[in-house]
């Protein structure tokens, strides 16, 4: 333990030396106290005020929240988040698991293939958005190309179709993150006891049964991590929507993050924007806090 026992002689130099570690930590403590928790408190407070273009401090109680839930665009954003979030998580996990299992079969050049599967994770969502925006554009992208190959009746105009555009966000987001999920599952697979697998194989279990009964159940921690990471990314999704569809056509691909930004900064409804941010925070907290809690406790 630190030298608190020896510090019976309270010279200034000694006191300073004892305080040094805390002194070094103090800028961070101050930063976190002000810029994370102070700011959370500030935005929380604003969500109960009549703020419009600038923060004002007239208390209006729950009115912003009541209004928020009456706004059609918020309703759309929440519904979109549910559709996007569920598909994004499920497809990423399924694809990630499949790729991890495929890669775990003593593949030659495994490292190289892994590098290819994972590189989109290094890109900005804006870059991903631009690439997919034009690739999915019916005028010049996939549709035009396939028609050019002679399939005149081929249509793929999801990105311009208000009912389907949200799925293009899923496509691009899955492309970007599924490799990451693959890496998480692969790490999980490598941690599985191979003795158990050998035993099951000797007992004549088929490969399918082996994975279903023995391997996948042991990947639960990896599933948990993947779920938490993906869910929190889904709720925070902003850049990709802006680059890919700009929230359109109309409001077809608005998500809570884009809603918050436009209500706060372009529609001058800061109180409502703050209320929507609070709801986003609560949703993320509901996922992250139990996760962090269990992770930190286990480490002790």
């Amino acid at each position: 333990m630190p030298s608190s026992a020896t510090a019976t002689r309270p010279g200034l130099a000694d006191r300073l030396r004892d305080a040094l570690p805390k002194l070094v930590l103090s800028p961070t403590v101050a930063i976190v106290a002000i810029f994370v928790y102070g700011f959370i408190a500030f935005t929380l407070y604003l969500s109960f005020t009549d703020s419009r273009i600038l923060p004002t401090f007239g208390w209006v109680g729950w009115q912003n929240y009541e209004n928020l839930f009456r706004i059609r665009a918020w309703d759309t954003a929440v519904n979109n988040l549910i559709v996007f979030g569920v598909l994004y998580i499920v497809v990423c996990c399924a694809l990630g698991l499949l790729l991890a299992i495929l890669l775990d079969q003593r593949i030659r050049a495994e490292g190289f293939i892994r590098t290819i599967y994972l590189y989109p994770m290094a890109l900005s969502f804006i870059v991903t958005g631009v690439a997919w925006k034009w690739f999915l554009d019916p005028g010049i992208g996939l549709e035009a190309v396939v028609r050019g190959w002679g399939f005149e009746s081929f249509t793929f105009g999801w990105i311009k179709d208000s009912d389907m555009a949200i799925y293009t966000i899923v496509i691009a987001a899955v492309w970007q993150t599924s490799g990451f999920v693959m890496a998480m599952f692969l790490a999980g697979l490598r941690g599985i006891d191979s003795e158990m697998m050998k035993a099951a194989q000797i007992d004549g279990a088929s490969t399918f049964a082996l994975y279903r009964r023995i391997v996948i159940p042991q990947l639960r921690p990896a599933f948990m991590s993947a779920f938490v990471v993906l869910a929190h990314m889904a709720i925070k999704s902003y850049d990709l929507v802006i680059a890919l569809t700009g929230g359109g056509p109309g409001t077809a691909t608005e998500l809570p993050a884009t809603f918050m930004y436009s209500y706060t900064f372009t529609r001058n409804q800061m109180g409502i924007g703050a209320a929507s941010a609070v709801i986003m925070l609560m949703t993320i907290a509901a996922i992250i806090v139990p996760y962090l809690w269990s992770e930190l406790r286990e480490k002790k």
């Binding site: 930590l25 700011f39 800061m270 924007g273 993320i284 809690w293 930190l296």
Partner: peptide
Amino acid sequence: ILFGLLLFGCFIPFQMVLIPM
């Protein structure tokens, strides 16, 4: 506890800090 608070700060939606920042 401090570390936990610090860690939670990594995951907050930054929409929450845009206005005060």
